[in-house]
């Protein structure tokens, strides 16, 4: 770059030329740096526009009214386009989930780590194997060998804490971030 320009010029010779060369190089590099920084900043909006928009984010959390869910019942709500299982567990189911020897689990996790309140189990109802929706939400549906959920696609069995016990799924059903706004309302997301 600098060679061609130099050839076109007249040579003034000696130190002055070197000095001029240095000053020009500095100007070239600093301008290039400022220009490159500006370009990089200008590119960001074009990438960021692909992220979820404000209206999508506004629906990123869902409030669920749990006052009408009886003990032993489950409901399925939609959160971020996916089914979420909300289960009001019975005392039996809770104790069953709590007494399991963690060493026997493919994905060891204590029941206490999966719930905020033991009687409310909230999980994303998507099998961790290949994304099918497990059975077990409705009365009379196949609940699998461990009394929780059963995925009919490839035969994964989940227990009453939603943990994988048998079958090809690699991990437990995901627990979404959630908190209890009050006794009858839970905020998912």
């Amino acid at each position: 770059m600098s060679d061609t320009a130099q050839n076109a010029g007249q040579s003034t010779g000696g130190n002055a030329e070197i000095d001029e060369q240095t000053r020009r190089d500095f100007l070239i590099w600093s301008t290039a740096a400022v220009g490159a920084a500006g370009t990089a900043l200008a590119v960001w909006p074009f990438i960021d526009q692909m992220n979820p928009a404000a209206d999508t984010l506004a629906l990123a959390s869902t409030e669920v009214d749990i006052s009408k869910i009886m003990v032993g019942q489950s409901v399925t709500v939609i959160w971020r386009g996916k089914p979420v299982f909300v289960r009001h567990r019975s005392a039996d189911e809770i104790s069953e989930a709590e007494v399991v020897d963690l060493a026997l689990l493919p994905d060891p996790q204590a029941d206490g780590a999966r719930v905020t309140k033991p009687e409310w189990l909230i999980m994303v109802g998507v099998c961790t194997h290949l994304g099918c929706i497990p059975l077990g939400q409705k009365q009379g549906e196949e609940k699998g060998e461990f009394g929780g959920w059963f995925c009919p696609c490839h035969g994964s069995h989940y227990d009453t804490s939603g943990r994988i016990r048998k079958g090809p799924a690699p991990s437990n059903l995901t627990v979404p971030t959630h908190r209890f706004v009050d006794d009858t309302t839970v905020l998912i997301g």
């Binding site: 960021d48 526009q49 928009a53």
Partner: peptide, 13 residues
């Protein structure tokens, strides 16, 4: 208008 209001930097683009 969703681009103008909700999409990130949509108004700019």
């Amino acid at each position: 208008e969703r681009i103008m209001r909700d999409v990130n930097s949509g108004w700019l683009i």
